[in-house]
Amino acid sequence: MQQFPCPFCGLRDEREFHFAGEAGKPRPDTTQPISDADWAKYLFYCANAKGASHEVWVHTTCQEYFVMTRDTVTMAVLGTHALHEVPA
């Protein structure tokens, strides 16, 4: 059972969180032409990094989305920050 630090609420049990996708995938401007390949890349493709992985999670009890960096090998949490905050 993992424990994740919500940037707003502090350390909480993993059951309070949902995974919401990999970080760093901005939504393309869909009012402009987008190729099928680019759209598929945005929709389906994940880096699925071995090691440090940047992910968006939501703390379901406060409903805030945030960015968490986790080591996918050791499961260690390397850091979290609010969604629109640029980490120092």
Partner: peptide
Amino acid sequence: VMAHLENWRQDSFDP
């Protein structure tokens, strides 16, 4: 639906 809306609110709008 609530989670879906929160996702887009925080991702693509000024919350």
